[in-house]
């Protein structure tokens, strides 16, 4: 048991160190409530550590975790309780940089299906093909969602000019 628990310790630390930021970011995209974020963290990492999937590569593991986290976030925000309550910490965004804040606001205000493609494409740097796999969508759907998200963002951030070309 000692051996096992010490082994477990390492694995836990390693996993948290490696992925906590990414999971937190995804959570940030979807959730506005600290408690929900905690729930998602616990469940996502528990799943990761309990699963007996053997990952082909680091990339595979990461993509898998992405998908798990996105699904979990959706589940949480879809839940009955969430639907019927308004969080008080809603939309609290702690950024000083006006530009950054603006872009982030714009992305966050997008519908879910655009948010996830934008995040995966621009931040994580996945190709449309990979995104399609992660989200279990058709590649063409990913392309059109990306396109529409860009249109919306352009419209939102409008006039501010040249630098907003994704």
């Amino acid at each position: 048991m000692d051996l096992a628990s010490s082994g477990t310790n390492d694995v836990v630390k390693h996993a948290l160190h490696k992925y906590s930021n990414m999971v937190r970011r995804i959570c940030f995209m979807y959730l506005h409530n600290r408690e929900d974020v905690e729930d998602v963290f616990q469940e996502v990492f528990l799943k990761l550590l309990q699963s007996n999937i053997t990952f082909q590569s680091e990339e595979h593991e990461k993509a898998w975790l992405c998908r798990i986290t996105i699904n979990k976030c959706k589940d949480v925000s879809k839940s009955f309780w969430r639907k019927n309550t308004e969080s008080i910490e809603d939309k609290e965004i702690p950024f000083e940089d006006r530009e950054e804040s603006g872009v982030l606001q714009a992305v966050l205000s997008l519908p879910k299906r655009f948010k996830e493609v934008v995040y995966l494409f621009y931040y994580e740097g996945y190709t449309a093909k990979e995104i399609a796999k992660i989200l279990n969508q058709k590649e063409n759907t990913v392309y059109s969602n990306l396109h529409r998200a860009r249109e919306l963002l352009k419209h939102e951030l409008g006039g501010s000019g040249y630098e907003y070309t994704f």
């Binding site: 950024f95 940089d97 950054e100 872009v103 982030l104 621009y122 907003y164 070309t165 994704f166």
Partner: peptide, 16 residues
């Protein structure tokens, strides 16, 4: 824009 987005998200890290 892309860089803004990235840097903004980079600031988001898991709280200790």
């Amino acid at each position: 824009m892309n860089t803004h987005f990235k840097s903004a998200l980079n600031k988001i890290v898991a709280e200790d």
